[in-house]
Simulated assay, not measured.
Amino acid sequence: MLNDFRLRVTPSLKRATSLPLALTFAAALGGCASTAVTTEPQPEDPWEGFNRKVFAFNDVLDRYALRPVAQGYHTITPDPVEDSVGNFFSNLGEVRTVLNSLLQGKGENASRATSRLLINTTAGVGGLFDVATRMDIQQQEEDFGQTLAAWGWTDSRYLVLPLLGPSTLRDTTGLPANMAAYPLTYVDDDATRIPLRVLQLIDGRAGFLDQEDLIQGDRYRFLRDAYLQSRAFKINDGELGDDPFASDNFEFDDADFSDENAAD
């Protein structure tokens, strides 16, 4: 049942979810029990023609540039090092989660994210090690797109951005605030900031190389539906809705099991 569904977020998936490229379907795999690829036009994607052209551009860029680099990085980098790199960038994102949790009135999650930031920055050696998760202080990311949804902008049109990949009008509106809330933005030294950004991009792309085989059918629609379901899952804080089969409050009487009903 959906309510019983749980997915263990591996370090590779954790890295992938921080990368907003055209192939970032891995985020959805961490938030949805299943993803149905539909063939009918979707009302949330009225600009599908434009979006497909941008998607094709991003896909070519990924196929001939980013993906080969990510494969090389994944091949030569030991898994513990890859995990530490992903942990470092994820730890920086806790600042954004704290701010957005406060804006949404989620004091408990703001406290949890603050604890994660302090623990991983200190005991985790600058965020290289996710000590907080080992202490069962789980991560629940929040961004400004989710904050806008919490403030009432629940439905938004799907939009594919050049280089950045899948988004919505709501999430795109939140991008400047997301950048402003990310500590790496304030590193003045280009010789430090640019290599870190490149490393973040490559490491994030490498994080879902193993998940690409899960794409089925129309790549554009698969990734679109996966992204939209992932965002809905995060906005609703993981709520999948009521599962009638998960309830124990069924009431039956003898008539339900009569031969007459069985014949029906």
Rank of each mutant, 00 (worst) to 15 (best):
L29H: 08
D188R: 11
Q211G: 00
G105Q: 07
R15F: 01
M135I: 00
D171R: 07
D59T: 13
P46L: 07
L161M: 15
F208Q: 12
G207M: 08
D143F: 02
G124S: 07
F250L: 14
S167H: 04
M1I: 05
F55T: 03
A110D: 04
Q211M: 12
S230Y: 05
S84Q: 09
T35S: 10
G217Q: 10
L223F: 01
Q42E: 15
T114A: 11
L201P: 00
Q104P: 02
I215K: 12
R8S: 10
L184D: 08
A150N: 11
D259N: 10
N109M: 04
W47M: 05
I76Y: 14
V69N: 08
L209T: 04
A206T: 04
T38F: 08
L169C: 02
Q42A: 15
A263T: 11
L99S: 06
T133E: 14
G124Y: 09
E82F: 12
P11N: 05
V81R: 04
E251S: 13
F245Y: 13
N249D: 15
D136P: 01
Y182N: 05
R221C: 01
A123W: 13
N100Q: 08
P166K: 01
P68V: 08
G107W: 13
T192A: 07
T10Y: 09
P176F: 12
G238L: 01
S90E: 05
G72S: 07
D83Y: 05
M1A: 13
D130M: 04
V198K: 12
E239Q: 09
V125N: 12
L23E: 07
